[in-house]
Design a protein around this nucleic acid. Structure first.
Length: 566
RNA sequence: CGGGGCGUAGCGCAGUUAGGUUUAGCGCGCAGCGUUCGGGACGCUGAGGUCGGAGGUUCGAAUCCUCUCGCCCCGACCA
């Protein structure tokens, strides 16, 4: 491709709307163009890179036993009602009506459709294990698109779905995908780590996310500096420390005028925060619930939402709290009735807690579970923070930010049961298929690759995803000798199977070099009067500082060494 | 949806506070000619704007008022 003919102009200045590095570079390189919030056109350079990423993914999916197919974007809305996920996705689901006024949804993901395909086509245990995948456009009406290609409303996703006869089969499929994903990231020049994750609207049990460490990432990762524990902060747990055992003391009412927050109460009574129980009120699908947790911890709303199995969760407002007869600032489960109480298991770690007395300006000392109160649900709903203890080795946890470039789930029978996708096992029993699903956002992967592979001058493409291998730079094109030598070299390189971006423009050296750096092809070759004097060209790797002079006849072999056979 | 910011030429901006010499400017980029030519060269000439949109106030609106649309950033959601 000739730069003089390439569609998409490089920009000298950074467009103001871009804040993340990948967004800035994609815009400056003339690779993407925004149409509206979270909706982009991919210009030729970006499109080539995206296709290369797809090809890497396709190869790994096929190698793991996947079969590529293609499902529709346009899906009957009833299918989403059948699975109940019209509510789980809520406004995130793009919907429309056809001419007969039938409601349709633009697919945000394809579990419903694939499950339907499976129930029509899988009959026997002989038909599994089965892995089906596609590269396809997803639509999600995200509340807030951001970061260029990091979070958009229309994007291409590779989604693979596995079907197995039993849990062991699922484990095997899951492991295959885990490995395939690691291969993909490594081939795309990405350092991605697998972390434990919440399964969100997709549903299911085990789940891992692949994170690319980046300051601009949307997710917080909690990880152990000592062992290999790593999890999304939504999912992370910690070893909650149990204080020294003390004898159980009798309940005692104390006046705590003006003290409402945990901080104030703890200070007033001169006890540590971990010696108090906090009360928080939530509205879960309209029902008021009482949440209690040890005073030194915070509630993780994702865990709470999963525990309550509700779709809408928010902090209750003052009116709702008053209406329920709760005393904000002095509430506790002691003596409480008629309201659902959810407790974090931290309340079993410790004794003689200070809790609210359910009357203004009054607290109780020495509350103990279960002696003094009961709860409806006891589980882990605590937010894990950097500085907490690792759940595996009890060393200190650390945190960092990351971009989620892939997510894999063990779905189990969530979908196959709801949609009755069954098979006959060896004994002739009808059983639901055991499913898994595995997704990668292609554009996001591209953005992450740039986040991790750039310098102040521009992109530094890893070879497998580079739009072109070589940036061929002709300096002094008005010199016929240079021009014809460059043309000849361009033709030869392409003949030898290299993908070449040929800068044939009548621009100054500075302009060409800066564009070469910005566009970031792995190899830059310069042809000029100077190099021709010694029948050579100059070769520079984008990732290195040094330039080397190569005799033209040796160039082909040198490039093969660098880029692999063309 | 809550909070913050912004819409003036392809990109980056000034002008808006105090309405009128602004037929709306500047830099980059773009077109033509000439000189340059190994890290974003220079000169001359030129094209390009219904100042996001609609209403209103006024003799007069980019500037004031009302409504509206769009975009970015921070939070609640996800590949």
């Amino acid at each position: 491709m000739r730069v003089s003919r390439l569609f998409g102009k490089t920009l000298r200045e950074v467009p103001t709307e871009a804040e993340t590095v990948s967004h800035q570079l994609l815009l400056r390189a003339g690779m993407i163009q925004q149409l509206s919030a979270g909706v982009y056109s991919y210009l030729p350079l970006a499109w080539r890179a995206l296709r290369k990423i797809e090809q890497v993914i396709r190869e790994e999916m096929d190698a793991a036993g996947g079969q590529e197919l293609r499902m529709p974007v346009l899906q009957p809305f009833e299918m989403w009602e059948e699975s109940g996920r019209d509510l789980a996705f809520g406004k995130g689901l793009f919907t429309l009506r056809d001419r007969r006024d039938r409601r349709l949804a633009l697919g945000p993901t394809h579990e419903e459709v694939i499950t339907d395909l499976a129930r029509r086509n899988v009959r026997s245990y002989r038909d599994v294990p089965l892995m089906l995948y596609q590269m396809q456009t997803k639509f999600r009406d995200e509340p807030r698109p951001r970061g260029g290609l990091v979070r958009v409303r229309e994007f291409t996703m590779k989604d693979l779905y596995s079907f197995d006869a039993d849990e062991d089969g699922l484990d095997l499929s899951y492991q295959k995908m885990l490995q395939a994903y690691k291969n993909i990231y490594a081939r795309c020049g990405l350092n991605a780590v697998a972390v434990e994750a919440d399964s969100g609207a997709i549903g299911g049990k085990d789940s891992h996310e692949f994170m690319v460490i980046a300051e601009t990432g949307e997710d917080e990762i909690i990880y152990c500096g000592t062992c290999d524990y790593a999890a999304n902060s939504e999912k992370a747990t910690s070893a909650k420390i149990r204080p020294e055992e003390e004898p159980l003391l009798p309940l005692e009412e104390v006046a705590t005028p003006g003290a409402k927050t945990i901080e104030e109460v703890a200070n007033f009574l001169d006890v540590s925060r971990s010696h108090t129980l906090k009360a928080v009120f939530y509205s879960a699908d309209g029902e008021l619930v009482f949440v209690t947790i040890r005073g030194d911890l915070e509630v993780n709303e994702i865990k709470l939402k999963n525990t309550l199995k509700c779709t809408d969760l928010r902090l209750a407002n003052d009116d709702e709290v008053q209406e329920a007869g709760l005393v904000a600032g002095a509430a506790s489960p002691v003596g409480l009735s008629g309201i659902k109480v959810i407790a974090d298991d931290s309340i079993t770690l410790g004794q003689n807690f200070v809790v609210g007395a359910n009357k203004p300006d009054t607290h109780l000392k020495n509350a103990n579970y279960p002696r003094d109160f009961n709860v409806d649900i006891m589980t882990d709903i605590a937010l894990t923070l950097a500085g907490d203890r690792c759940p595996r080795c009890e060393r200190t946890l650390l945190s960092t930010r990351g971009i989620e470039v892939g997510h894999i789930f063990k779905l189990g029978t969530v979908f196959s049961q709801r949609q009755e996708a069954c098979f006959l096992d060896q004994e002739g029993n009808q059983k639901p298929l055991i499913m898994g699903c595995y997704g990668i956002g292609i554009g996001r992967l591209l953005a992450a690759a740039i986040e991790q592979n750039h310098d102040e001058k521009g992109i530094i493409w890893p070879v497998p995803v580079a739009p072109y291998h070589i940036y061929l730079c002709a300096l002094g094109t008005d010199n016929p000798e240079v021009a014809s030598a460059a043309e000849k070299l361009y033709a030869e390189l392409e003949q030898n199977g290299f993908e070449v971006l040929f800068d044939d423009r009548a621009e100054s050296a500075g302009v060409k070099f800066n564009d070469a750096d910005l566009l970031g092809m792995p190899v830059r070759i310069v042809v000029s009067q100077r190099t021709l004097k010694s029948s050579s060209v100059e070769l520079k790797l984008r990732s290195e500082k040094e330039v080397e002079s190569i005799p033209i006849e040796a160039l082909n072999n040198r490039l093969k060494l660098q880029l692999g056979p063309g």
